[in-house]
Lab assay of single mutants.
Amino acid sequence: PDFTLHWNGITIHFKGIDEEQFRHLRELLDRGVSLEELEELAKELIK
């Protein structure tokens, strides 16, 4: 499924991740993950 997340004025689209992965990403963003960390995470998910 696809998810869209609005965070700090940025709209991020996640394609092909499951709800569990999306929930994990939201928790990280709510905790204050940096954009660099988010990019690293995205690379991991894409593999």
Rank of each mutant, 00 (worst) to 15 (best):
H13V: 15
N8M: 08
I12K: 03
L38K: 00
F3T: 01
K43E: 11
L25A: 01
Q21G: 08
E37Q: 10
L5R: 00
F14H: 00
R26P: 00
E39C: 03
K43C: 03
D30I: 14
S34W: 07
E20S: 13
F14W: 04
N8F: 06
F14A: 01
G16N: 11
I46W: 04
L28T: 04
G32Q: 04
H13D: 06
H13T: 14
L25Q: 00
G9R: 01
I46S: 10
I17M: 05
G32S: 05
H24I: 14
E37T: 11
E39N: 08
I10L: 09
I46M: 10
K47F: 10
R23T: 06
K43V: 07
E37I: 11
R31N: 10
D2K: 11
I17V: 05
E20A: 15
I46L: 12
E27W: 15
N8P: 01
D18C: 09
T4E: 05
E44A: 10
N8V: 02
E27H: 14
E36K: 12
K47R: 10
T4C: 06
K47H: 13
T11L: 06
F3H: 04
L29C: 07
H24V: 12
E44Q: 10
I12C: 05
E19Y: 13
H13L: 10
E36S: 11
I10A: 06
G32E: 03
L29N: 02
T11R: 06
L38E: 00
I46F: 07
E44P: 00
S34N: 06
V33N: 03
E37M: 10
H6S: 14
F3P: 01
L5D: 00
E19I: 13
P1S: 14
L25P: 00
K47S: 14
D30Y: 15
R23I: 07
K15Y: 15
A42L: 14
R26L: 10
G16Y: 08
E44D: 09
L29D: 00
W7L: 10
E20N: 13
R23G: 04
G32C: 06
K15G: 10
L5C: 03
L29K: 03
E36L: 11
A42Y: 15
K15W: 15
E39G: 06
L45H: 04
H6P: 01
H24M: 15
A42M: 11
E40H: 09
K15Q: 11
F14K: 00
L25F: 11
S34D: 06
D18S: 15
K15C: 04
I10Y: 05
L45R: 02
L5W: 03
E27R: 15
N8K: 11
L45D: 02
G16R: 04
W7R: 05
V33H: 08
L25S: 00
E36Q: 11
L28S: 06
L41T: 04
T4I: 11
L28R: 06
I12S: 01
D30C: 08
L35P: 07
R31S: 11
E27Y: 15
N8S: 03
V33I: 11
K43T: 08
S34Y: 04
V33W: 15
I10M: 10
F3R: 02
T11Y: 08
R26C: 05
F3Y: 11
H13Y: 13
R26F: 06
D2I: 15
E36C: 05
P1Q: 14
L28M: 12
E19T: 09
I46C: 08
I12H: 03
K43R: 12
R31L: 10
G16M: 05
T11E: 08
W7T: 02
G9P: 00
L35M: 10
S34I: 05
S34T: 12
H13K: 09
I10C: 07
R31H: 09
F14M: 04
L45Y: 13
D18Q: 07
F22V: 03
R31T: 09
E37F: 07
K47T: 13
N8Q: 08
H6V: 15
H6E: 10
L35F: 09
F14Y: 02
L35D: 02
L28P: 00
L29G: 01
F22N: 00
F14S: 00
D18Y: 04
Q21N: 07
R26I: 07
V33D: 02
R23Q: 07
E36P: 08
L28F: 08
L29F: 15
D30T: 13
L5I: 11
L29Q: 03
K15S: 13
E40P: 01
E44Y: 06
G16H: 09
K47Q: 14
I12V: 11
V33C: 07
I46Q: 09
P1T: 14
P1A: 13
L25K: 00
H13P: 01
L35R: 05
Q21Y: 04
E40I: 10
H6F: 08
H24A: 12
L41N: 02
K15P: 08
H6N: 10
I17H: 02
E20T: 14
L35N: 03
L5P: 00
K47A: 15
L45I: 11
L45G: 03
E37L: 09
L41C: 03
I10H: 11
P1E: 11
